[in-house]
Design a binder for these strands. Structure first.
Lengths: 195, 195
DNA sequence: TTAGTTATATTAGCATTGTTAATAATATTA
DNA sequence: TAATATTATTAACAATGCTAATATAACTAA
C-alpha cells in the first residue's frame, strides 16, 4: 500500500464513519453529502474524490455494519453451548440488532442498489450473511439430530426467509406487534420446522 | 355525497391515476409533485389542495393496486378447483404480480410510512392482504387435510413470512435467482410445511 | 531552494424536489 | 350584478446531488 493509498483509506474512513453515525441515528434518508461533510470537517464536494456518488458512500458502510452485527451477536450469545439454544439465541440477537438500528436494516434490505458496478459484492453478501452467522451451529445441530441434507436445506431456507419476512413486516410497522411477540413467533417457527 | 365531494373524488383520482402510472413504470422514486401534475394537466401546487403531501398521494395508490393484484390473481387462477393447487397458483400469481411491477412491491413493502395520521388503515391492510387472498382456500384445504387449528396457524404464518422474505431478497436483487427458481422454492416450502 | 507540476479541496453554480405564501382565476351566492 | 368563497397558479425558499472552475497544498526536478 503506497502512501497515497493509506491517505485514501483514511479519508474514506472519515466519510464512512460520519455516514455510519447518521444511518444509526436518523436513518439513510439523512445521509446527504452536506451532512456527511459537516460531520467530517470537509467540504461536500471532497466526497466525490473518494466515492463515485452518495450511494456509493452509503453502500460502503455495509461491511462495517456487518462486523458490528457479528460482534453484537457474539457478545449476546457467548456463553451458550447447546447448538439448538445457540441457533435460537443468535437469531434473536440478529433480530434485536436491527430493531436497535432500523437504519441499518434499511440499508441492508430496503435500499435499492442503484450503484450496480461498485459495491456489488457487499450487496450480494447481505443475502448470505444470515447463513454464515448460523452455519457452524446449524451443522452441529443437524448432526446431533441426524437430519438428512435435503431436509436441512429446506428447513434452513424456510427459516431464513421467515426471519426476514418477519423483519420486513415489523420494521416498517406493517403489523402492530412487539419485539417480544415476533421473537416468540420465530422461536415457534424454528421448533415447528425441526420437530 | 355533495357536489363538492364528487369533484373532490374526481380530482383525487386524476392525481392518483397519474401517480399509479409513474409507480408502475419507473417506480416510486419518480413520483414528484411536478411529474404527477404534468401528467394530470394541473399545476403541482394544486395537489396540495387534495393531498396532505406527496407521500399521502403515494400511499393513496395502495387500495387501487391491491384491487389490481386481486384481479390479476383471479384471472391467473380462475379454472383451478383443487384447493391445494389453488393455494400454490395464487401464491405464484402473487409473486409474479410484484415481479411485473416492482414499483408496486416497493410501495407496499419498502416505503416507510412517514404519514402516520393519514392512510394508516391501507398501510396496515398490506400486512393482512396475503392472508385474505388465501383465506377461503386455506380453510377448505385444512378441512380436507384434517389439520388442527394450531398447526394451521403456524403453517400459514411460516408460509406467509417465507413468501415475503423471498420477495424481499429477490426484488432488491440480493440473490441472483430467476423468477422460476424462487417460485419453485416457494412450492417446495409449501409442500414441506404441509407434509 | 524554488519554479513548475500534480494532487487535493473548496466555492459557485445548476437542476431537481417538497412545500408554502401570495396572487390570479373561477364559481357561488345574496 | 357585486361580493364572497373556492380553487388554481405563479413565485419563492430551502434541501439535495452533482459538476466545473478555482484555490490551495504537496511534490518533484532543476
Amino acid at each position: 500500500m503506497t502512501r497515497n493509498e493509506i491517505q485514501d483509506v483514511r479519508m474514506r474512513k472519515y466519510f464512512i464513519d460520519a455516514a455510519k453515525e447518521l444511518i444509526k441515528g436518523e436513518g439513510v434518508v439523512v445521509v446527504s453529502t452536506r451532512n456527511v461533510a459537516e460531520r467530517s470537517g470537509y467540504s461536500y464536494a471532497t466526497i466525490y474524490n473518494y466515492f463515485k456518488d452518495v450511494r456509493d458512500l452509503i453502500f460502503a458502510c455495509i461491511e462495517d455494519f456487518q462486523q458490528e452485527c457479528i460482534d453484537y451477536i457474539d457478545e449476546q450469545t457467548k456463553g451458550i453451548k447447546n447448538s439448538r439454544k445457540k441457533i435460537i439465541s443468535i437469531t434473536n440477537a440478529y433480530i434485536k440488532f436491527f430493531c436497535m438500528y432500523p437504519g441499518i436494516f434499511e440499508l441492508f434490505f430496503l435500499e435499492k442498489p442503484k450503484v450496480i458496478s461498485t459495491r456489488k459484492s457487499s450487496i450480494e453478501s447481505i443475502y448470505t450473511f444470515f447463513d454464515e452467522i448460523l452455519e457452524d451451529n446449524l451443522v452441529s445441530f443437524t448432526n446431533d439430530m441426524k437430519l438428512n441434507p435435503k431436509e436441512v436445506e429446506i428447513i434452513s431456507q424456510t427459516f431464513k426467509l421467515a426471519v426476514h419476512g418477519e423483519l420486513l413486516f415489523f420494521m416498517n410497522r406493517r403489523n402492530n406487534e412487539t419485539l417480544e411477540s415476533i421473537i416468540k413467533r420465530i422461536d415457534d417457527i424454528f421448533n415447528f420446522l425441526i420437530k
